[in-house]
């Protein structure tokens, strides 16, 4: 089975995000960037499938600036076989990403696409589902377990009420949740090896897809700040305060 893994370059999850004073966005200058944490989990899952003999080839694809190549290299160092960078300096929305990925799928004919459930910058949680619709493929979103069974892909999903398992027929979309696996750190020899793995350089125009944004940003602001309250001495004081505040 051939697996496609889209990986997004995002602000590192440990960075404290700062809103720009002109309210046009958040400050990304000199900020540490990393692979979206959910995408590390997708790559890990694909690599484990390869190690288990169910996956034969893993292709990592990223849509983003030149530096997104580093994100692809990280995937290659974890065990992906080759990469595709669709290079653009524009901000591509999930709909545009899904359309580009649909074209990559048409060229590469993977049996499964594993995406993150959400990118931690836009928090959209859309791209995988959109890709599923564009391809007419079934989806198993928010996966905490993925396995092949009776010729179908069984995906256990983290849903509001607990866990739900669905069976998907034919080529499928999986979007991963945090508990699916624990991503590995790439070893030094594997990082060296990854430097020799091929990355195809592409541009959105190569795919003939219109990626013009549909949303325009009016402003980006700081959330209302919450004032730190007070420290209380002990439990009786806490109970007293809560009573006065009408909370209990």
């Amino acid at each position: 089975m051939k697996v496609l893994v889209p990986v997004k370059r995002v602000i590192d999850y440990n960075v404290k995000v700062r809103v720009k004073s002109d309210q046009t966005g958040v400050d990304l200058a000199n900020v540490k960037m990393s692979m979206n944490p959910f995408d590390e989990i997708s790559v890990e899952e694909a690599v484990r499938m390869k190690e288990a003999g169910t996956a034969t080839e893993i292709v990592a694809v990223s849509i983003g600036p030149q530096q997104a190549q580093e994100t692809i290299r990280t995937a290659l160092a974890m065990g992906a076989d080759r990469g595709i960078l669709i290079k653009t300096d524009e901000n591509v929305e999930p709909l545009g990403v899904a359309k580009l990925l649909a074209k990559v799928v048409a060229e590469e004919s993977p049996d499964m696409v594993i995406l993150g459930k959400q990118a931690i910058d836009d928090d959209s949680n859309q791209t995988g589902q959109m890709l599923g619709a564009l391809l007419g493929w079934p989806q198993g979103t928010f996966a905490s377990e993925v396995k092949a069974e009776d010729g179908k892909i069984h995906v256990t999903r983290e849903v509001d009420g607990g866990l739900q398992t669905v069976a998907l027929e034919g080529p499928s979309i999986v979007t991963v949740d945090l508990r699916l696996n624990e991503p590995r750190y790439a070893s030094l020899p594997n990082i060296m090896k990854a430097k020799k793995k091929p990355i195809d350089m592409k541009a959105p125009e190569d795919y003939g897809v219109d990626i013009a944004p549909r949303l325009s940003v009016v402003k980006v602001t700081e959330p209302p700040v919450r004032e730190a309250g007070e420290k209380v001495e002990d439990v009786p004081t806490l109970v007293e305060k809560l009573k006065t505040a009408g909370a209990i």
């Binding site: 709909l95 944004p213 009016v218 602001t221």
Partner: peptide, 30 residues
């Protein structure tokens, strides 16, 4: 169409407010 996820405000028929970056920024978009 481009979906508007997890909105927390509506400011007219084309304008929506939603948190991004885990709520560390609030974006208004049309």
């Amino acid at each position: 169409v481009m979906q508007l996820s997890d909105i927390v405000g509506i400011e007219g028929q084309d304008t929506f407010v939603r948190p991004i970056y885990a709520g560390n920024a609030i974006m208004t978009v049309t």
